[in-house]
Nucleic acid binder design. Structure first.
Lengths: 668, 668
DNA sequence: CAAACAGGTCACCAGGTCAT
DNA sequence: ATGACCTGGTGACCTGTTTG
């Protein structure tokens, strides 16, 4: 059922804000708003002001517009890059991959989580971002959870829900977990470590990015990576280290290495791939690895960041890198920067990301990228940002990093090198943390100041947040999870990357982002002051996200449940409790459904298509267009039905809708 | 017809004062003045002095500036929150939903009214939001009412208009069940209780908010709630009691109960959904859901709520909560307290909306999702076309709504609080009036700047707007009809919820408002204050809430009259009772009128629609189109019919609508 | 040819400004 | 202090293009 909905997204949720995704844009599943935002912002970093909260704002539906800096950061974190984009449809295959990956990831994650979790410190850590609450959740939970469960959870988290439900079902099933993901993510950030673990899973997510592959996924990767120096970006990157931790540990491993090969990274995915898929398992095909790519995509949060880390090591995908970089930059900005720096616009933030490391890359990348991005040139920038930073930020980041590192790192260690951490952290922090931590509390504190920002609006608001604290948790994340990345654009991205590489790709334009953002400057102040939390607060909100997701899901029916679950989850996290529990069950069910659906999906789509198509026809006519549109609309409407159907058996569904429609028509 | 006027508003009236709404601001349809007021006040509670009348001041156009405390309270009651804001355009889908809801609601309302009316106290109650009235309806009615009826009623109430009527119907219908979540949320609020009650009604309106979907409407939701303690705010909330009535009864049922549950109410919506669509009716499936999706969107009020519900349960949306809370608080304060207390800012009044209902979920989800769909094809656009019709449509819709509301409303009793009537009245006027709004014109001016890029667009846009002015109105709506929601906003929204749940995130931020307002001071204040709602407040919910309100609004025609009445009303309120009772009759009458009006309109519209669609061409092609069209038509028709029908038996109505639609189609 | 995304368009809203 | 108006920006929808 559910499903369906979007064709595009396949039920994915926007990795940035948790809303239902409209499709895979710029390397990640995002909603129209985030797509547009990214598109607009990428070229106009200048327009972005600093984050009042040190870059910790949680981004969710509600508050996504509250803090551009954090929103952009989040975009980067999840792997968005201009370069990442891809045209054309995604193959089913791709989709499948995504799902699989997710599953895998989850599994992995789960595993990792458990294992790692602890490690890292918190384990999951995720919490981080979530701001407050968050972390715990993810991590903990994860850890706590039984492996399988964990895995599932992880997945869930990541994918959140869904990922693909159906497919994964199992995975997902895990259920409840999902939400966590977000958290995880958060954590991730943070802590990446844990997260990392998660990530892995996550990473996976992140990682890769590109789901799709579009193109190439692969391609993408590399290219970028290579190209840009940025990768390092990290400049600050250095951070890497931390970052490194993050994740990958596993994979990452490599981590350290930064440079070079990025391409591989992307590949990272591969690794993922390798995994057996759960779901896929069945699938004969499975193209394998190819798919994987997406990993990164998978999760929202992660990706980028993660990647970064990874990248760091390796090179992250260009995109990633960029992203990372950007992210880093951003964060920095946020945080620190305060003022000054921001990204270098010109460059692309990202830069490169390259990191690569072949193997590990993935993880590594993340880190790196981040910052530097732009690096190459620009690197500096990021740094700056970072630098500036603010202190707070940094701290946060560090936390993350640390955590992450721990976890992952554990090993890793990133190494110094990168400061990766830094960036990562930043990123992470930013991402993750954000709120979280600091976030929340801060918030409280914050309040006070407020200063600036506040001014704006918020201030007040911020205050509120305080309370939130609790709340938040939840949700949001989940959503993220769900999605899978199809393809991964990421990958593709990569391809694009090349360009990036060059520059950052996009650099040219694209990149622009410099993180520098204005923000920075202020940043701090803002931050502090702002304290408000503002933004975040909401963010966290998480819950919402969750829900949202749910909805998204809902699509299917199940989803809903999930949502709730999520919530629960969320809640739990935060508050433990609350929520509830239930969710899972539901989910499962859903999953089931989903599963079912999925298969169909492909087919379904077609059906759907038909409808649409029809429209087309209309078109011909022309004028008709209008009509068409309407039809479309209707269709859509129907579609909805249809959508649902999609997965399922499309045909059927469709029919129904149609029928109805028809009926009408007929009647007519 | 009227209509239209505002594009934005779609003929909505300011939920706070009854003037024509300039748009959907901070989660509710409001006029420029109330928008500004809220914006200013939110951050400066201090500036608000206590109400001399124990918070019982009725707010209407005339006296809105007389008592800031009450005005602010009212704002909160209707679901305004900083977080509730929504950006961007409203999806067609959303629009459609609204229409549908209306219809359904109407139907329901009608039904309810008849049946229930009596029961509850006021029966329908929608009033709620509107102020006073609200509550009653829901709950009691629900209970009392026959299931179906109840449901319908609920819908009406809640959703006000509509939640989605059709769709969910069942589910929802069922009940209420779903709602629960919301209820929960509400509860959450707490006070929801009362608040809830009110809310409900009110809430509904408020709640929802978001019309659009945007997002999220959802957003709103929860957030606040959780976070803030405020919720309770209720402190005073208690109030609930009165309010209680409001709504939900059903769910809420609690009517009385104050507290809590509000959410359900929202759910009510669900109920709504469940409803069969008129048009759809035929549809087996129902994609409805799909359509629906939007629920949240749908109405302001509803959707969110609904969704929320889901969430809600858990966590109401922050916003909602906040709102709710706030409202509650406010009320309390005012009412009871007299002075003292206020809301807790933080919380949101509403709470949640959640509703969910599992089963039904689907639908719900669908709704959400639906949208997305979109089509694939592309065609999409169409919208425009549709538009045309628009105006009329809108009007129609409104009528429906109004009618519905009235019907519903009547009831209401609103409880003390609001004197619902008043509002309505106002509203009505507003609706009619609408006009428009300023906005458009402005556009022109703008131009300039734009800094960079933006400029461009914006400008354009604006410009357009201008022109739009006219256009919009119309069209959109019409279009709306046609459109489907792609995804849905709704969905999204929901999803958010989760987050909300969490926290609400944001809330923090937003909300500053504390209800505390100076006024009260009190306690809440603090909370609130700080808490503020802030931020988050935003959230969520609100928006949705808002919608609900709309309905509320609906007011329409009558309203105007009412306005004057308001005063009366007020009076009445004071004197309890009032509320309701009569309403029905009136409504009916009105309905009649409306009907009439509508009818014509409809036809026209239909034609139009048809035409558009019709795209005859389409036909050929595809059925689909046809279908779509049909749908559109249906929608429209339904609307129209629906409206007409309203009173009649909902079901019937629906059919009719459908029929009509069909017919139209046929024609086509 | 159809699917699906980058981009562009423009409906709409938060906020700021300023006359009242 | 209010609220009309304007500015900036968000995001739903479309269009154009690439890709399966």
């Amino acid at each position: 059922m559910m499903n369906q909905d979007n064709p595009y997204a396949m039920n994915q949720t926007c990795k940035v804000c948790g809303e239902p995704a409209a499709g895979f844009h710029f390397g990640a599943f995002t909603c129209e708003g985030c797509k547009s935002f990214f598109g607009r912002s990428y070229n106009n970093l200048s327009s972005i002001s600093d984050c009042k909260n040190n870059g910790e704002c949680i981004i969710n539906k509600k508050n996504r517009t509250a803090c551009k800096a954090c929103r952009l950061k989040k975009c980067l974190m999840v792997g968005m890059s201009k370069s990442g984009s891809r045209y054309g449809r995604r193959s089913n295959w791709f989709k499948i991959h995504c799902l699989l990956q997710e599953q895998q990831q989850q599994a992995v994650a789960a595993m990792a989580a458990h294992h790692n979790s602890q490690q890292a410190g918190g384990g999951g850590a995720p919490g981080g971002s979530g701001g407050a609450g968050g972390m715990p959740n993810g991590v903990k939970a994860m850890s706590g959870v039984p492996p399988p469960a964990a895995a599932a959870a992880a997945l869930g988290m990541l994918g959140h829900p869904g990922g693909y439900p159906g497919l994964y079902a199992a995975a997902t099933a895990g259920g409840g977990g999902v939400r966590s993901k977000e958290e995880l993510m958060m954590l991730g950030l943070e802590s990446a470590g844990d997260y990392g673990a998660l990530k892995h899973p996550v990473v996976a997510s992140p990682s890769v990015s590109s789901p799709d592959s579009h193109n190439s996924d692969s391609s993408v990767e590399v290219s970028a990576v290579r190209g840009n120096p940025l990768l390092h970006l990290g400049g600050k990157s250095s951070a890497g280290g931390a970052g490194g931790g993050g994740g990958d540990g596993s994979q990452a491993s490599g981590g350290g290495a930064v440079p070079g090969r990025p391409p591989q990274l992307r590949k990272d995915l591969s690794p993922f791939l390798p995994l057996p898929f759960p779901g896929l398992g069945s699938m004969p095909v499975m193209p394998p690895p190819a798919f994987l790519p997406p990993s990164h995509l998978l999760f929202p949060g992660y990706h980028p960041a993660l990647y970064s880390h990874h990248q760091g090591l390796l090179k992250p995908t260009p995109e990633q890198q960029q992203a990372a970089v950007a992210a880093a930059a951003v964060q920095h900005l946020f945080n620190s920067s305060g003022a000054g720096q921001r990204f270098a616009p010109g460059t692309s933030p990202f830069g490169n990301h390259q990191q690569h490391q072949p193997p590990p890359q993935q993880h590594l990348k993340e880190e790196e990228q981040p910052a530097p991005t732009r690096s190459p040139s620009g690197h500096a920038n990021n740094n700056h940002l970072l630098t500036n930073g603010g202190a707070a930020d940094e701290l946060t980041k560090r936390f993350y990093l640390d955590a992450v590192l721990k976890s992952q790192r554990h090993s890793p260690p990133a190494t110094t090198k990168l400061p990766p951490h830094s960036k990562q952290d930043y990123s992470i922090s930013a991402l993750v943390t954000p709120n979280s931590e600091s976030g929340r509390e801060r918030v409280k504190s914050r309040q006070s100041n407020g200063q600036n920002d506040e001014d704006e609006e918020d201030d007040e608001v911020r205050t509120e947040q305080i309370r939130d604290g609790a709340e938040e948790d939840e949700e949001e994340e989940d959503l993220v999870v769900s999605m899978t990345p199809p393809h991964s654009p990421a990958h593709h991205q990569e391809p694009e990357t090349p360009a990036q590489v060059g520059i950052h790709p996009s650099p040219g334009q694209d990149d622009p982002i410099d993180l520098s953002m204005k923000t920075t400057g202020s940043s701090l102040s803002s931050k502090s002051s702002s304290p408000d939390m503002d933004p975040e607060p909401e963010n966290f909100s998480e819950g919402e996200k969750i829900e949202a997701e749910d909805e998204a899901y809902e699509e299917n029916d199940k989803e809903e449940d999930e949502e709730e679950e999520d919530l629960k989850i969320t809640t739990e996290e935060d508050q433990p409790e609350e929520h509830e529990k239930e969710p899972e069950e539901e989910q499962e069910q859903e999953d089931s459904e989903k599963t079912v659906k999925q298969a169909p999906l492909l087919n379904n789509n077609n059906s759907i298509s038909n409808n649409n198509n029809n429209n087309s026809i209309l078109s011909d006519s022309e004028a008709s267009e209008t009509i068409k549109r309407k039809l479309d609309e209707l269709i859509e409407a129907s579609s909805e039905n249809g959508k649902r159907l999609r997965l399922e058996s499309p045909a059927t569904t469709v029919k129904v809708a149609t029928s109805n429609a028809l009926d009408l028509t007929t009647k007519v």
